[in-house]
Computed example of a mutant assay.
Amino acid sequence: MEKEPTLVVMAAGMGSRYGGNKQIDTITEQGDIIMDFSLYDAWKAGFKKAVFIIRKDFEETFKKHIQPGAATKLEATYVFQDINDIPEGFSIPEGRTKPWGTGHAVLSARDVIHGPFAVINADDYYGTHAFKIIYDYLKDHADETHYCMVGYKVENTLSENGTVNRGICREENGLLTDVEEHYELGRAADGENKGKIVGRNESGETDVIPEGTPVSMNLWGFSPEYIQVMKKGFEDFLRKEVPENPLKSEFLLHHCADLQIKAGEAGIQVLPTDDKWFGVTYKEDKPEVMARFKDMKEKGIYPEELWK
């Protein structure tokens, strides 16, 4: 088993709310995309390898950006997420076009992950501190079967231009006990909850989410054994959940870890950060994001040319 942590980048999505391939939409005058800053932060934190999960039809465009940039500092490997990549004995439901979810995306990299690994979204900015704490944790626990997650304060993950979906986390003594997806999170504009953060839980009820509550931004860390756990979990998902919702059910990255927590088979360390997430969830987010990156470059947080 390798002990050096690998960064796994989920970049196969289309960004339906934004419209188009937002993963390669430039946000600086130098031609950087949001992912460049995450890759730069990961490299500075100590990561030496990156695995990019992409679509086959996106390969040429994606590599054209990565190879002369981040790939000059990080060893880059590319794998493809394909809806047809399912275990023998299963079939794709008629009419299904939706990808299988973030868990399936990471399973696409099962043959190239040989040690501890961190997982990020391609189109989110996570902050410099987040990569440092997750790299150090994975490095320090390389010989253990243990997982971790960077926990962001919910108020640091909202968009001013629309609602967002987030995994609301509960923890005890620093360990994650539960993750519940919440939808349409944002600050209430009026009513008794005006100014408070509200969203719909998995039962469709409205919850008020206290500020400071940790949320998952899909910045997870796993020991390599989790790949085998997900293999079995994906088969269970196809067998039990897909028949109930054949066109839209999703196999999420933390699905198996959540089951392991409840069964007492695993612990997930929550690594708290005050870093502020931001990204281009909506087209209206882009001008603000561009201004933030320009400001960080002017302040010297990032060099003007990231990869030179």
Rank of each mutant, 00 (worst) to 15 (best):
S91R: 02
P93C: 01
E94I: 11
E94Y: 04
G95P: 05
T97A: 00
K98M: 10
K98A: 06
P99M: 07
P99F: 10
W100F: 07
W100V: 04
A105H: 03
V106A: 04
L107Q: 02
S108I: 06
V112E: 00
V112M: 01
G115R: 05
P116V: 12
A118N: 05
I120N: 04
D123A: 14
G127Q: 06
T128M: 09
H129S: 08
A130M: 07
A130C: 13
K132L: 04
I133P: 01
Y137E: 13
L138G: 11
E144A: 14
M149E: 09
Y152P: 01
L158M: 07
S159Y: 10
E160L: 15
G162R: 10
V164R: 15
G167M: 13
E172V: 06
L176H: 08
T177H: 11
D178H: 15
E181C: 10
H182L: 07
Y183T: 13
G191D: 03
E192P: 05
N193P: 03
K196L: 11
V198Y: 13
G199H: 12
S203D: 14
S203N: 13
G204F: 02
P210W: 05
P214G: 13
M217Y: 09
L219E: 01
W220A: 06
W220Y: 15
S223G: 15
Q228T: 09
V229G: 00
